[in-house]
Amino acid sequence: MIKIVVCLKMVPGKLINAEAGGLIINPYDLFVLEKLAELKKSSDISVIGICMGGESARDGLIRSKALVCDDIYWLNDIKFAQADTIATTKTLTAAIKKYIPDADAVICGGHAIDGETGQVPAELSEKLGITYFSSVADIESFGNDSAVIVRRDERQEMTVRCRYPFLLSVDSFLTYASNLNVIALKRAQKWEYKIISAEELGIASTDCGASGSKTKVINSVNIIYKKESIEIGGSIKEKADHVKKLLQQ
């Protein structure tokens, strides 16, 4: 059985739908879950979700469980809050090393739509000491000692066979899970989600959350300077002619 860890992040739903409240599964992570659900039908894999987040992550975890996850580790402790990418990486590393040390593959969405840094996957691969594959567009199959993936950048598309263990950063996304069914969802709601605290994980508070972070937002400013603009009045035709004139200069 091939053991696959999926890193999950819950992000504000309003980033996808202005009316949506609460948190949803990051669309890049959702693509991974959906893909694994598809592959699970034909290959012998077990999928373990790992997520750092508070109580508001529960709904997304239920969906992840219903979609494909056999097991979920929920790193839920106020001490993990406000982590930057370094502190997040250390926390995820500690959890993977403690609970899933024999993982064959670790898969992350390429970036989260709320932070948009895309740094955690590479950072995590370095801390875990496993091979890193970025720009993954698709996952084709899982074999006994390797998996076949598709990597895509601006210049080329490559189908690659990679040996376990490795970490993938996936650049495809989905906003809607079509493999989700009601019965699985009901079952997932009744499942008991293991909540893991910093103490249980055995990570020092100086290694996680705000105290373990190496960056800090000091304040926010507006660096877009207001300009004095000239308003062009008149008819639509006069306005259009003015712009044409500027373009000819």
């Binding site: 990418t85 990486t89 740094q119 955690v120 950072e123 370095e126 801390k127 890193y132 960056t215």
Partner: peptide, 14 residues
């Protein structure tokens, strides 16, 4: 990212 992780130094993206 690999460098920041190896030396555990702060990294700001973009």
């Amino acid at each position: 990212s690999l460098f920041a992780s190896r030396f555990e130094v702060g990294l700001t993206a973009d």
